Computed example of a mutant assay.
Amino acid sequence: MLIVFGLGVLTGIDCTIRIIKYFLEKNRSEIIYLIFGLMIGSVYAIVRGPTSLEASLKPMSLCSFSVMYFIAGGVFIFSLEKIKTILEKKES
């Protein structure tokens, strides 16, 4: 059961990547603006907090900010960029 679920997840990721690549090749600027708009629009939801739950949670504030998770996210992004540059060097 877990293998079938995993294969479904991998298939979904592969299909999504292919669809995004296709649209980026055909309508690059429109897709970039769409992605940028989604990112800007999500800031409102992050700051306001989830309001559709029965017991709504508190909005984001400095009290709920976690330095540890902020640093972990930065390290994760930095690591992905390093891996990308290493793989690009190996290809060329």
Rank of each mutant, 00 (worst) to 15 (best):
Y44M: 09
G49W: 04
L38N: 12
T16W: 04
M39T: 14
G73D: 10
I20H: 02
L24G: 00
A45S: 11
K82S: 09
G37Q: 12
L38Q: 13
N27Q: 09
I13E: 04
Y69I: 14
S61N: 05
K84A: 12
F70Y: 12
P50S: 15
L38I: 14
K82R: 08
G41Y: 05
V43W: 05
F23I: 10
I71R: 01
Y69A: 07
C63W: 01
I31P: 07
L53H: 11
V75E: 01
S42W: 06
G74K: 03
A72M: 09
G49A: 05
E30A: 12
I13L: 05
L24E: 08
V47A: 10
K84F: 09
V47G: 00
I35S: 08
F76A: 11
E81L: 15
A55E: 13
I17G: 00
K21R: 10
L53M: 15
P59F: 01
G74F: 03
E81K: 06
N27A: 06
C63Q: 11
S29R: 12
K82Q: 05
P50M: 13
G74N: 06
I19T: 00
G8E: 09
A72G: 03
I77E: 02
G12I: 09
S61F: 02
L80S: 02
V43H: 08
I35F: 07
I19K: 00
S29H: 11
Y22P: 08
S42N: 13
S64M: 03
A72D: 01
S64N: 06
I83N: 00
L87M: 05
R28I: 06
L10K: 03
Y22L: 13
R48N: 10
L87S: 09
S42Q: 14
I35K: 02
V9P: 01
E54P: 04
K84G: 05
E88M: 10
F76D: 10
F36M: 15
E25A: 04
K90L: 09
I20D: 11
K90S: 05
I40Y: 03
S29F: 13
Y22V: 03
G6H: 08
L38K: 10
G74Q: 07
S64G: 03
A45W: 05
A55D: 13
V9D: 02
L80R: 02
A72H: 04
E88W: 01
